[in-house]
Simulated assay, not measured.
Amino acid sequence: MWNGVIPAVTTKFTPDGELDHAEMERCFALQMEAGCDGLIVCGSLGEGPMLSQDERLAVLKTAQSAAKGKPVLMTVSEAGTREACALAAKAAKAGASGLMVVPSPIYHTDEAETVATLRAVAAAGDLPVMIYSNRVAYRVDVTPRIMEELASDARFVAIKESSDDIRRTTEIINHLGDRYAVLTGVDNLAFEALSVGAVGWVAGLVVAFPAETVAIHRLLKQGRAAEALEIYRWFRPLLDLDVSTFLVQNIKLAEALAIGSTEHVRAPRRPLAGARRAEVEAIVRRALERRPALKLAA
């Protein structure tokens, strides 16, 4: 459950802003058909903060239907601990396989507050937890020292490592051994992280290019690093689109061009326009024109 390629999927909307469950079902199924190992819903890429808790639970249900028994994790990223605990409990009741938990994205907790928040959410959900460590986006660094303090609670099982420092993967493993499954959460550091011990990839561009994402992970597992690197180098300009304030719009445009999906987003976001749209579209179209042939053993 805590390894392989796990897409952080986008949430699909109709033109009038309602949840588009049919399109989500179609897109989520493409991830499963490509060999992904689970789904994570309602994260940053999934526009979770723009959704009500009831909407997030509805997205969870759709993902569970598409996943065909593979794990589906709910992202918990709430301003207040009370609200985070409430969502964790609701997700558990709805049958989520686990939680991916962010400390408050609004208030920048100190170490003691970070530990207390994560413990409270884990207790409320009583599910396996992946700690989302993203000091760049959320200004809270869940350090190896914090991870060590939380290690006594068996519900904490994995780390989504998104510090944007490739040294951190090795630091976690050196400090804590195999206590946590370490998954990389930065698309354009994935090859590097997987090469030094990360066991999985919480991926973003996978939603538009699932086969290539899965191929990189599988090739590395098979010891075929040179072949994986060739695909990764082709993929890299696309993967850079994940590391942006506009990652949601970037990746939804990539989905529109690569798999015929939609670009509808929740306000205050707006679809890309003008020079920024032209730049992203050129990157995606160039990649599609040069798409590598995949030769991969199961």
Rank of each mutant, 00 (worst) to 15 (best):
I231F: 05
V196G: 02
I216L: 08
A193H: 15
A225C: 11
L194D: 01
T169C: 14
R233K: 14
E227V: 00
P210F: 02
V196C: 12
W201A: 03
H217P: 05
L176R: 02
I231L: 11
L183F: 01
V214I: 08
H175I: 09
Y180I: 02
A228N: 03
A190W: 10
A203H: 07
P210C: 00
L176P: 03
V182M: 04
R218V: 11
F191T: 01
A226V: 06
T213S: 15
A211W: 10
A225P: 07
Y180C: 03
L220C: 07
L189Y: 15
V207G: 04
T184R: 08
T169S: 11
T169P: 04
L219C: 03
A190L: 07
F191D: 00
P210D: 02
A226M: 06
T170N: 09
V214L: 07
A208N: 05
Y232H: 15
L219S: 06
V186P: 11
G223D: 00
T184M: 08
P210K: 03
A228W: 06
G197C: 06
E171C: 08
G204T: 08
G223A: 03
V214M: 09
I172L: 08
F209L: 13
R224H: 10
E227R: 00
D187V: 09
A211R: 13
W201C: 02
D187K: 09
I231E: 06
T213V: 12
E227P: 00
L220W: 05
L176W: 04
G223Y: 00
P210R: 03
A203R: 01
V202L: 14
W201D: 01
R167N: 13
E227I: 01
R168W: 11
R218W: 07
E192T: 11
T184G: 13
W201M: 05
V214P: 11
A225L: 05
R179G: 01
R179E: 03
R167Y: 13
L220Y: 07
Y232V: 04
I172T: 02
I172E: 05
G197K: 06
I216K: 11
L219W: 04
V206Q: 10
R168Q: 12
G197V: 03
N174V: 10
V182E: 01
T169N: 14
D178E: 13
I231Q: 07
D178I: 05
E171P: 11
N174T: 12
V186F: 13
R233P: 01
L229V: 09
G204P: 07
T169Q: 12
V207A: 12
D178Y: 02
F191N: 04
L205F: 12
H175V: 05
A193K: 14
L194E: 02
Q222H: 11
I173A: 09
D187I: 13
V206G: 11
D178A: 14
A181M: 08
L189I: 04
T169L: 12
E230H: 13
Y180G: 04
A215E: 06
V199W: 04
A215V: 02
A203K: 06
A208D: 08
H217S: 13
I216P: 08
R179I: 02
Y232D: 14
L176I: 00
E171K: 13
R218E: 12
A226W: 03
E227T: 00
E192A: 10
L205S: 12
N174K: 11
V182T: 02
V182N: 02
G177E: 06
A226L: 09
E212T: 05
V199L: 08
